[in-house]
Design a protein around this nucleic acid. Structure first.
Lengths: 205, 205
DNA sequence: GCACGAAAATGACATTGCGTCAATTTCTTG
DNA sequence: CAAGAAATTGACGCAATGTCATTTTCGTGC
């Protein structure tokens, strides 16, 4: 085959490596959705691919690590959406609404993607992985920028970011429990709560 | 021994049963704190007691069930504090402050109790266990009562309860990361955020 | 093309933890 | 105190884990 030289921008080694990694992650998604995280075993995940058991361990050290990779994946996909919400926003109100909306939209799609059983069966999502911290940083920076330009009062930005994340998580879960989930209503609620609540939060410095 | 008849209000069977259960829970607390939930095995917990492996299964079916028992224990201890905050409160502001304060106080004590490594390594705390739902209900009822008597605007009580819980969890974690943790400041922040935020939340009905 | 070495895949295997159960001990009851 | 009910015990069968020597696949220089 004369086209061998031009066929791949990268070698086959590298290509199968990403493919295998993706295969494992896809299988893990399915298995976690089907059996739940706790009940799932590494072997279940492996069976969901056409790889040998030993190969799995070339990519991940454990079930936990696979889950973390999935979570990181989500964080990596979500962060740009958050950033976009910040850049497109015309006002602080706009920003909050857009950001919450983006998150709620995101989790609705993510949950519709996989198995029927609602993902109430997930382990604790570690917040200290780099990807997760990047999302936290993005939230915080968005808030700090608003504070800096006077669009929001000078409150404790760390606490405020945490509060926003906590609200997003819990109200998001509650929204998913409703049928059909109303993204707009949830976003309005969350943004409204934060917005008119800022004046009541203790000033910093 | 003539005092045998008056010695125990309950039989020895019952007493050792509670003692064993407590021993397992105490060992589990230690082991989870030391190794982290994921890494801990049922055998580790058993080794932390003077019981045989089979005995463990007379009390709990799995590691998960032990953890749930610990969480339920916390919920059972915390709910009365929340109720007390509601009953003692002179106003809605008072209630929110007291409730957040009670929670932050609670987690500070709970974390001081066990091993140095911060409990950032906990599994997802199931919210659908009866004890947990009871706490949610208490929160919700407190809020609904305030709404009913006009102390708070008519907002979606479910979302509001979830938002309060989310804020408590995340701001609580952030507070624990600081040294020393300032319970009063965290409570003021959380209560202030909710309070002045209510007017901004969309009205229901 | 070919051959050689590096890199990755394979699956059998030793290890470890899980949950059960027949045997044994401990307690209660009449 | 005897009888039996209840709880404990730990060895065992089983299942999942993670490793590693072997084999296969790919990249590189000739």
């Amino acid at each position: 085959m004369s086209d061998a030289a031009i066929a791949d921008p990268v070698g086959k080694r590298e290509r199968t490596k990403v493919a295998n990694r993706q295969a494992i992650l896809a299988a893990a998604r399915r298995v976690f959705a089907q059996l739940g995280y706790e009940a799932a075993t590494v072997r279940d995940i492996i069976r969901g691919t056409d790889l040998a058991s030993g190969t799995f361990y070339n990519y991940f050290r454990s079930k936990e690590e696979v889950f973390e990779a999935l979570a990181d994946d989500g964080a990596r996909r979500f962060k740009p959406l958050l950033r976009a919400a910040r850049e497109q926003a015309r006002s602080f109100t706009d920003y909050l609404n857009g950001a919450f909306r983006a998150y709620f939209q995101f989790i609705v799609e993510d949950n519709a993607l996989e198995g029927r059983p609602i993902e109430e069966r997930r382990p604790h999502v570690r917040l200290d992985t780099p990807e997760m911290m990047a999302v936290y940083q993005e939230v915080r920076q968005g808030l700090e920028a608003a504070i800096a330009r006077g669009a929001a009062p000078k409150v404790d930005a760390d606490y405020l970011a945490c509060a926003c994340i906590g609200i997003a998580q819990e109200v998001g879960s509650a929204m998913l429990r409703r049928t059909p989930p109303d993204i707009g209503a949830a976003a309005e609620f969350a943004a409204g709560l934060i917005l008119k609540g800022l004046e009541g939060a203790p000033r910093k410095n």
